[in-house]
Amino acid sequence: MITVANRMYVSPEYREQFEQRFRQRAGLVDGMPGFLANHVLRPTKEGEPYVVLTFWDSREAFEAWTSSDAFRQGHARSGALPKEAFNGPGGLEVHEVLEFGAG
């Protein structure tokens, strides 16, 4: 299993719009093979990024999503936020999930 964390620095005046876009997201990723979950993490301190965190069965499943028509459709939706909504460089991180037994 992997996680993909997309760190996004959102200008304070666009935070509500940013969150609303995820509340009303197209949901095209939900039916993709290997997709497990999507979480949006809101920063607790000013100046920190949002983290859009997705869980996948494998890196191959994630890469299949990013090259799919559904990905292009989901990211080309009307109502995208303007460039000024983002006030810092983002970053994409991919991690393998290590699972350890409970004790």
Rank of each mutant, 00 (worst) to 15 (best):
A102D: 14
H75S: 06
Y14I: 06
F35Y: 14
Y50C: 08
A5T: 09
F86R: 10
E48D: 14
F35P: 05
E84P: 00
H95W: 13
G90N: 12
R72C: 01
V40E: 09
G79W: 12
A102R: 15
W65E: 02
N6T: 13
F100P: 01
M1V: 07
F100Y: 09
K83W: 01
S58L: 02
N38Q: 14
Y50G: 10
W65G: 06
R23F: 05
P12Q: 10
L28F: 06
E48L: 14
P43N: 06
E13F: 06
S78H: 10
A70V: 07
V10Q: 00
E99C: 04
V52G: 03
E84F: 02
F71T: 05
L28G: 15
A80I: 01
F86D: 13
D57S: 11
G101V: 01
L92E: 09
V94Y: 07
E13L: 12
R72L: 03
V29I: 15
P33T: 11
H75C: 01
R72Q: 10
Y14M: 04
A85L: 07
E13N: 11
P89R: 14
V40W: 13
H75F: 04
Y14N: 02
P49G: 09
I2R: 03
E93N: 13
F18L: 06
L92W: 04
